[in-house]
Nucleic acid binder design. Structure first.
Ligand SMILES: [Zn+2]
Ligand SMILES: [Zn+2]
Ligand SMILES: [Zn+2]
Ligand SMILES: [Zn+2]
Lengths: 137, 137
DNA sequence: CGCTTCATGACAATCATTCTCAAATGAAAT
DNA sequence: ATTTCATTTGAGAATGATTGTCATGAAGCG
């Protein structure tokens, strides 16, 4: 039931660099941030290239992508290839991967009960992690 | 536990017009669309004003807002004031309101189990409605 | 090595959303 | 009704992430 549609893509230095930058990062990063990371590491990669690769990788399921509150797309190479969701800290960006079979089934069921097919879903949970909870007013 | 923070806001012709346009609409509409709707109805309202009011209304829980696949914010005056989610048709925009206590609890629980507080969540389900499913390959 | 095809990069173009700030308006006080 | 003052509006500029363009560079291949 897990779907990766690994498109036929040609390996390049840039792609490898992006993948590595993504592997090093522990939190979700935006295309712009990845681009900056590479730049500051002396790796010169075009911004458009970063966008294109990140999107392709996301499409192929190699990386996860979520939308921040202000609409920015952020990517991350997750620990597991299996379908999962995240609990993200609004304060520091810490992201925990979680699975939710119950939610998966619910989405499918509720949609089907209303006659919908080809169902997809988006589930994101955010809050303040333990550390960030301490410094609240 | 349901939160509306009805801000002290001053009633204006524009606000009323926007609220009405929203009430008439059956699907989710973007700020731009609402603005166009008003314009074509002879109601002249500044685009910035539409954005401002829509956001304020969303903040106060008067209307629902979701993000489309391409990052556009779309609003709708829903049937119920209670917390709920949607199953939206990718083909025609038809939106069904659904509740999911199980999901609500799951989000809260899984976040808490990882030490998160002030938890919020986003749950959107989309697919093809019965009608739109017919014309697929 | 030549050839074909895909990827890259610099930069222009999009486009939803936000910002600016002077003018208009609501509400309350006089 | 008129003054007063904070809020809201509107027209247009500004922002900023993402996408498009297209000439150049690199991969794959015989
Ligand atoms: Zn945190
Ligand atoms: Zn899921
Ligand atoms: Zn439909
Ligand atoms: Zn919910």
């Amino acid at each position: 039931m897990s779907g990766q549609a690994r498109t036929e893509r040609r390996p390049t230095r840039q792609r490898a660099a992006i993948a590595e930058a993504l592997a090093d990062a522990t939190e979700f990063r935006s295309a712009q941030e990845i681009h900056a990371d590479l730049a500051s590491a002396g790796d010169r990669v075009g911004l458009a290239t970063v966008y294109r690769n990140l999107q392709a990788m996301a499409t192929d399921g190699e990386v996860d992508v979520i939308r921040t509150a202000d609409g920015e797309s952020v990517y991350r190479a997750c620990a597991t290839e299996d379908h999962h969701h995240h609990v993200v800290c609004r304060g520091c960006g810490l992201a925990v991967e979680v699975t939710a079979d119950a939610v998966e089934r619910w989405a499918e069921t509720v949609a089907a009960s209303h006659g919908f097919t080809q169902v997809r879903h988006t589930v994101e949970v955010d809050g303040l992690c333990r550390r960030c909870s301490s410094g609240s007013s």
